[in-house]
């Protein structure tokens, strides 16, 4: 039972965060609506990756492979935004 405890905790946290997402959607935060929703979603994705996908217990190499795509994601965001912001 003890071995599964962490999964129950992670799962419960995910449920709580889902409830928070729903609750927040009733508030009008203006520009922050999307940011808050995305932040909560990222937190949830992080929990899934760390615990259910065992990333927390993996060797550094695997962790590196998991983190590297975020660099790539950053590249596409920066590259595209530089164009979008300075276009006229």
């Amino acid at each position: 039972m003890a071995a599964y405890k962490i999964y129950f905790v992670a799962w419960s946290t995910l449920l709580v965060l889902t409830a928070v997402t729903v609750a927040v959607s009733y508030l009008n935060l203006g520009l922050w609506n999307a940011s808050v929703a995305l932040a909560i979603a990222s937190l949830k994705a992080g929990l899934v990756a760390l615990y259910f996908m065992h990333l927390r217990h993996e060797i550094k190499l695997v962790l590196g492979f998991a983190v590297f795509p975020f660099l790539i994601l950053g590249l596409i965001l920066v590259g595209t935004l530089i164009d979008a912001i300075y276009r006229f």
Partner: peptide
């Protein structure tokens, strides 16, 4: 039609 600054960077 991409922005000029992007063109220079790329």
């Amino acid at each position: 039609g991409m922005s000029t600054i992007s063109g220079v960077i790329f």
